[in-house]
Simulated scan of single mutants.
Amino acid sequence: MLPLTLTFLKKLHQNNNREWFKEHKKEYETAKAEFSVLVTALLEYFTNQIDPAFSTLTAKDCIFRLNRDVRFSKDKTPYKTYFSAVLHPEGRKTEKPLIYLHIAPTNNSFLAVGVFQPNKEYLKKIREEIDYNADELKAIFNKKEFKNYFNNFEKMANGVLKTAPRGYPKDHENIELLRLKHFVVQKSITDKQLLSNNISTKIAEIAMAGQSLNGWLNVVWEETVENLEN
């Protein structure tokens, strides 16, 4: 349950300034602690179900700072109005396929799996795999447990090429996949769900449904690293 988290974030959205935040620092700390409990529960679940290496993490290794980097932004509000965390054995700075949790009030929360902004060599290899054998990737999207939560890859802002990537024809049968720059699927989470007693179980179920995609992306990552080493 995240009642204090949602309440604090709603207030912060209406009072996004340093003076208000300073006066409500204790509310922030309480909300963050509540969110940390959820992240800790998920880490324990993933330790048992995905990889024992998750046990090396604490919530602190996964949760992003609330402060915004405003140096190059027109929006100078100092704080994010959401809590977020990356769940991966390497922590939040990993470049590998991961699980991302985003908590924001008014039904704007979601869980995502996949890879965001893959590096140049990794992106190249993903496209090669799609070109060579897209059926394997499509089969993942057709799995019943996957379809229960996810549809297509998210088409994010500035996340799709306007034309075919270099070396591929514009009429390629899988051009919509090849044009992507990010390979992420996500599932919305409602405020009502966040207030339920079994929210950690629900989020874990969503994450587990997406592990077949992360598994495919991990194989491609390993092939990318192998190619760079040879």
Rank of each mutant, 00 (worst) to 15 (best):
H13A: 15
N142W: 04
K170V: 02
T40G: 05
F141I: 02
I103E: 11
R92K: 15
T77N: 10
A164V: 06
K192W: 00
L12E: 05
L66N: 07
E23P: 04
K80E: 09
E173S: 12
V113I: 13
E29F: 05
Q49K: 15
R68K: 08
W221M: 12
N148Q: 14
F141S: 07
L213H: 12
H13E: 15
N151F: 11
Y168L: 13
N198W: 01
L87V: 08
L123C: 09
Y100C: 04
Q186S: 14
E121A: 12
F35G: 01
G210P: 09
H182E: 11
L6Q: 11
L228K: 09
S200W: 10
N107T: 02
E145S: 11
A139V: 01
K60I: 07
A104N: 11
I99A: 10
K147E: 09
F116Y: 15
N142I: 03
Y149L: 03
L2F: 00
P169F: 14
K10V: 10
A104C: 14
W20G: 03
M208D: 08
E136F: 10
L101Y: 05
I50M: 04
Y45C: 15
N227A: 15
L123W: 03
A53W: 07
K25D: 08
A209H: 00
D171A: 12
E95I: 08
D61W: 03
E23C: 04
L137P: 04
L38K: 02
A33W: 01
L42I: 14
D191V: 04
L194S: 01
Y82Q: 14
F183E: 06
I126K: 09
P3F: 00
